[in-house]
Structures are given as structure tokens and as C-alpha cells.
């Protein structure tokens, strides 16, 4: 917390150092994020076209009113974004945590397996998208063949032509892609888990499950919260995977906010409107993170 007495020479010097230390970061962000952002934000109040962003009629909050009251796709896009984000984050968390637990103990070939587990994250995102398309192909995809030989399905599923299946396939691919991030962070967290705590819990007669819930999870809480916040923000922005596979279809089943924003700007040329969507999205995420930071700081103090 900043000191309230501004007059002390030390706090003044601190203030200056803080300014100097933050300056490079803020300068770069100002140049490549905030300045461009400021120039487009104004468009959200205009009926602006993509090729004439500053032009267009001034419509005040018209874009927002239309978006929130008339637009039938917007609620779908919000819902899909939330589903996509939540299931991706939860999925990556569960698989990443399981992998981290399994690979933190003594396992043969541990180093190698840890390396393998990181691969999905190193493959360029565009390739992940195309690999998804290839593996989930309804006619020749390996996913269908595998599911059928395991006896889980009888007929091939045309993944990208079924509304639920399409979203499910994308979530699975996304979880695969992002698991290494959770895996790595949680693996790191597990390394520092104090042995004494685990031993103490064992002495108390706590079983594996209890120990996990009472010792391991609280220990990792800090990491989990930070990574989760980042994952939520990143997944809201997930564009490459969905655009390269379904472009939001079939029938809006995979239409997320990022896809909808893109379509409005680059296919419909309604730049003002797409900026309005982005602004609503920004405000939503801001509210989420302010709330989240509160919760996080609260739990840290506790």
C-alpha cells in the first residue's frame, strides 16, 4: 500500500524510482497497445466502415444499444465464449494437474516424458488448428477410427457438421494445446511442496485424497489462481484455432466473441460495430479481473 505521507523524502524518491522502473513497460505498451486502442475506441461510437474508420456517422451509444438489444448472435457468442473458455480452462487444469502429479514422483523416463508433455505447446498454433481439422475429419480422421475400434461409437461422427460435436472437438483440441502450461506451472509448484506437511498429514492418518485436498491444493492455490486468470483472458482471445477450423459454424455453434468481432470487422466491414463488441468484451473481462484480484488478495491475506 502506498504511504499516505507524501512529504517524506524517501517516499518521494520511491515515487520517482517506481516511475523510472515502470516507464519502459508503460512506454512499450503505450506505443503498441494503448495508442492503437485509443484510436479505435472512438470508432465504437460511430457507424464506421473498415476502410474509413474515423468516418461514418456519429451514433453515440447506438452500436451498443443495437448489440445489447437487437443482436441475436451476440448472446450466442457470449455463451459460446464462456463455454469454450470454461471447459478449456477446467480441462487443461484437470489433465495438467494429473500429469504434474504423476510426473512429479519417481517415474521411469521422467525427464523424457516431461519433455514430451510440453510438445503441444511448442507446435505453432496454426498447425495445431490444422492438425485438429485433420484428426477430427469425419471420413478419414484418426479420432473416428480410434473411437470405433475402441467400441465407443458405431458410426463415424462428422465432427464439424454437428453443432455440439464441433464445439466439443475444438475444446478437446484446445485443452490438448494448453495442458502443458498448467502442467509446467503445477509441476513446478509441486516441487516446492514441503515434505513435512505431507508427512504430518500422513501421521494424522489422512488418506491420499484428504492429503491432496488439505495439503497439496492449498499449497498450489497461488499458482492455480494466477494461471487460471491468464488462461481465461487468453482463451477469450482464442482466434486461430476456431477460424482455421469452423469459422464459427455450423450454424453459430462455435461462434465466439473473437470470431464474431472478426467477422463484423473483416467480412461485414462494420468496424464501429466490431469495436463496440470489443469494448463490451473488455469491460466484461475488466470486471472479472478486478473481482478476481480482490478475491486473490483477500485469500493471500487470509
Amino acid at each position: 500500500m502506498p504511504p499516505r505521507g507524501h512529504s517524506s523524502p524517501r517516499s518521494r524518491s520511491d515515487q520517482r524510482y517506481a516511475a523510472a522502473f515502470l516507464a519502459p513497460t508503460l512506454a512499450i505498451l503505450a506505443l503498441v497497445v494503448f495508442y492503437p486502442l485509443a484510436t479505435v475506441l472512438a470508432s465504437s461510437l460511430r457507424d464506421a466502415n473498415l476502410l474509413a474508420r474515423a468516418g461514418g456517422r456519429f451514433v453515440g451509444l447506438g452500436n451498443f444499444v443495437r448489440l445489447l438489444t437487437l443482436d441475436e448472435v451476440f448472446p450466442t457468442a457470449v455463451l459460446n465464449t464462456v463455454i469454450f473458455t470454461a471447459s478449456s480452462v477446467v480441462g487443461a487444469f484437470v489433465v495438467g494437474f494429473a500429469l504434474a502429479l504423476a510426473l512429479s514422483g519417481r517415474v521411469p523416463l521422467r525427464g523424457f516424458l516431461r519433455g514430451i508433455a510440453l510438445i503441444p505447446w511448442v507446435i505453432p498454433g496454426v498447425i495445431v488448428a490444422l492438425l485438429t481439422l485433420y484428426m477430427f475429419n469425419g471420413e478419414v480422421g484418426i479420432v473416428n477410427f480410434t473411437l470405433r475400434s475402441l467400441g465407443l461409437i458405431r458410426h463415424f461422427i462428422p465432427w464439424f457438421a454437428r453443432e455440439r460435436a464441433a464445439l466439443a472437438a475444438l475444446v478437446v483440441a484446445n485443452v490438448w494445446n494448453q495442458t502443458p502450461f498448467y502442467f509446467l506451472m503445477l509441476l513446478a509448484g509441486l516441487q516446492t511442496q514441503p515434505e513435512e506437511l505431507v508427512e504430518a498429514a500422513k501421521m494424522d492418518g489422512a488418506g491420499v485424497v484428504l492429503r491432496f485436498l488439505n495439503v497439496t491444493v492449498p499449497h498450489l492455490k497461488g499458482i492455480i489462481m494466477i494461471i487460471t486468470a491468464l488462461m481465461v483472458i487468453w482463451n477469450f482471445n482464442n482466434f486461430d484455432l476456431i477460424w482455421a477450423t469452423t469459422q464459427g459454424g455450423p450454424v453459430d455453434a462455435t461462434m465466439t466473441l473473437s470470431i464474431y468481432t472478426y467477422r463484423q470487422a473483416f467480412l461485414s466491414f462494420q468496424f464501429g460495430y466490431s469495436t463496440a463488441i470489443s469494448v463490451v468484451w473488455l469491460l466484461g473481462l475488466l470486471a472479472f479481473s478486478v473481482f478476481y484480484i480482490r478475491v486473490m488478495e483477500g485469500s493471500r491475506r487470509a
Binding site: L22, T25, L26, V32, W234, S289
Partner: peptide, 20 residues
């Protein structure tokens, strides 16, 4: 400032890129 820095990640890159 913390919020400002995090907020820089909350806007779709594709909208910013035109202006950038």
C-alpha cells in the same frame, strides 16, 4: 497500473492491428 497492464491483454489483437 496493475489493472491497466492486465487490461492490455483484453482487447482482440485483430482490431488493434489495423491501427498498429
Amino acid at each position: 497500473i496493475t489493472v491497466l497492464i492486465i487490461a492490455s491483454q483484453m482487447f482482440p489483437g485483430v482490431v488493434i492491428v489495423i491501427s498498429l
